[in-house]
Amino acid sequence: MKILMVTGYKPMELNIFKEDDSRIQFIKASIEKRIREFLEEGLEWVIISGQMGVELWTADVVMDLKEEYPVQLGVFPPFENQDGRWPEALKEKYEELTMAADFFKPIYKGDYQGPYQFRTKDMWLIDKSDACLLLMDEEFPGSTKYFYDTLQKTAKDYPVFTITPQDIDDVVEDLRMQDPHYWD
């Protein structure tokens, strides 16, 4: 696998409303753990659409991993100005990402035209990647359900790796056990 697409929840679907929420560090650690495994096996590119939440957190992780691995980050939003209605802090983060990414190109020119742009974006990312890493709880799929349904209908021989709530709990426990005060 050379190209991995990553997606998952938006922050509000996880009841995360601030960028300094402590739960984000556990989500990022879970993403990093999986991406590191893929990098050790030869992963070269991580691609995202740049939506807020899991995808922006993935971008942070990949940018940090660049210090250790020759990994590239590609950002392919469904249309220009996807961040137009986002909170100001996330707009700034997105703007920085568009400049720091190794490749950035909206799939459609212009602003939002309709839901077909999201479907096209999903199909395009599936087509351009070798596999997907999806942060999703099947009991509460949220907006990831649309992407997951597209995968089920169209990508028959396409590997889908997941990060589940249990995976995140395992990372939380690992991090707690690394704290020297845990054993007191």
Score class of each variant (00 low, 15 high):
residue 40 E to T: 13
residue 86 W to I: 02
residue 161 F to T: 02
residue 68 E to P: 10
residue 97 L to R: 05
residue 48 I to W: 11
residue 105 K to Q: 04
residue 124 W to N: 12
residue 44 E to G: 01
residue 103 F to W: 10
residue 87 P to A: 14
residue 4 L to I: 09
residue 34 R to M: 06
residue 93 K to A: 15
residue 144 T to Y: 01
residue 105 K to M: 13
residue 139 E to T: 09
residue 112 Y to K: 07
residue 132 C to W: 02
residue 20 D to C: 03
residue 110 G to Q: 08
residue 40 E to V: 11
residue 77 P to I: 00
residue 141 P to S: 09
residue 67 E to Q: 15
residue 110 G to N: 02
residue 15 N to Y: 10
residue 111 D to W: 08
residue 59 A to V: 11
residue 90 L to D: 06
residue 128 K to Q: 15
residue 167 D to F: 01
residue 57 W to V: 11
residue 171 V to S: 02
residue 31 I to F: 14
residue 21 D to A: 14
residue 70 P to D: 15
residue 74 G to M: 11
residue 61 V to Y: 03
residue 61 V to A: 11
residue 10 K to W: 00
residue 128 K to S: 15
residue 155 A to D: 07
residue 29 A to S: 04
residue 64 D to N: 09
residue 42 G to R: 15
residue 46 V to Q: 10
residue 118 F to Y: 14
residue 16 I to D: 00
residue 155 A to E: 08
residue 63 M to E: 08
residue 118 F to N: 06
residue 29 A to C: 00
residue 171 V to D: 00
residue 121 K to G: 04
residue 42 G to E: 10
residue 109 K to I: 10
residue 68 E to N: 14
residue 81 N to C: 14
residue 72 Q to F: 14
residue 65 L to D: 14
residue 50 G to V: 08
residue 121 K to V: 00
residue 183 W to A: 02
residue 43 L to K: 15
residue 58 T to D: 09
residue 37 E to F: 08
residue 68 E to V: 14
residue 155 A to L: 12
residue 122 D to G: 11
residue 127 D to A: 06
residue 164 T to K: 03
residue 168 I to P: 04
residue 86 W to H: 02
residue 139 E to Y: 02
residue 90 L to A: 11
residue 124 W to S: 05
residue 25 Q to E: 04
residue 38 F to G: 03
residue 149 D to Y: 04
